[in-house]
Structures are given as C-alpha cells and as structure tokens.
Amino acid sequence: MDTNFPDIRAYGGADAFLRACKPRTVLGMFTNKWTGLVLGALLDGPRRFGELRRMLDGITQKMLSQTLRAAERDGLATRTVYPTIPPRVDYELTDLGRSAIGVLRAIGDWASVHADDVIAAREAYDERAKEPVRSV
C-alpha cells in the first residue's frame, strides 16, 4: 500500500480495492457499456422497450432486457406495466437514476474530448503487437 495515503480501513473507511467494499459493488453498475446509454436514453422521460431499442444502435433485445432489469434492480429505473392489449410497458428513471446522470455526463464529456487520443493509442498498440518479439 502506498505510504502517502493513510490506511482508512483501520477507521472503518471504504477501500474500493477490497472485495467487500460497498462502493465497489455499486461501481460495478457502471462497468456495463449499455447502462450509461440506457440511462441517458431515459433522461427525457419514460420510454417503451421498442423505442429504447431503436434509439440504442447495436444493442440486442437480450442485452436491453438485461440492462433494464439490472437498472430496475439497482433502483435506477422503474418499470410500469399498463393493463392494455397488448400490454404497454414504460421504463423511467428514478430519482436515484437521475442523480447518476451528472457522473455519466462527465464520463461522456471526457470520452468526447479524448476519443481520438484513445483510438490513436489503440492503433499504435495494435501496430506494435504485430511486430515480432525481440529479446532484450
């Protein structure tokens, strides 16, 4: 452990490097690339499943279902079923889900600013990976 930072675990503090750390389990919600996109798609109000699927280019029906189910389980979105034929189902952000939008926006802004840098780094890495391994 870096000695420049105090070990706050001794005082009951959180440490995201520990498996049992509560914030670490919550951070896992945002490691799925679709979570942020689904939450962003719900930002303007309730949406139906088909509408979300059309908005989110490249998402499969299965992945959208899993992501919406996880967002509902985590308290980020609600699912409302209307007793019509066929049944109508709307998804909407909860207050907790709306509170995460600022963080997601910041990540999106960073990605927009640095996308070219990341793509260039990937391409350079891939080119280096093609070179034969040389002994040192």
Rank of each mutant, 00 (worst) to 15 (best):
M55C: 10
A106N: 05
L18N: 07
M63S: 15
A20C: 11
M55G: 00
R128Y: 12
R88D: 07
R19F: 12
A129W: 13
V89Y: 03
D15W: 06
L42T: 04
G108A: 09
L43A: 15
S99H: 04
T35E: 06
R122W: 12
T3H: 04
E127V: 15
E72N: 14
A20T: 14
R48W: 00
I85A: 09
T60N: 05
D74E: 12
D7I: 05
T84Y: 06
H114Q: 00
V103T: 07
G102V: 04
R134H: 09
A41P: 03
L64Q: 01
R73K: 15
S112H: 10
G50D: 09
N4G: 02
V81H: 11
V38N: 05
L18V: 08
A124Q: 10
D116P: 04
L93V: 02
P87N: 02
A14Y: 11
L76A: 08
R19K: 13
L42K: 03
R105T: 13
G50N: 09
V89H: 01
Y11V: 04
L93K: 06
P46H: 10
D95T: 08
E72L: 06
E131I: 02
G50F: 00
I119K: 15
D74K: 10
L68M: 05
V81I: 14
S99V: 01
R105A: 13
D44L: 12
D74Q: 15
G58F: 00
R54W: 00
F17G: 14
K130L: 14
D7N: 13
A121V: 02
R134P: 02
G58K: 01
F30Q: 04
R69P: 00
V118T: 08
L37Y: 14
G40M: 13
Q66G: 00
L27M: 13
V113F: 02
F49A: 02
D15Q: 05
Q66N: 15
A100M: 12
A71H: 09
W34D: 09
L39W: 07
T78A: 12
D116C: 11
R79V: 03
G12K: 09
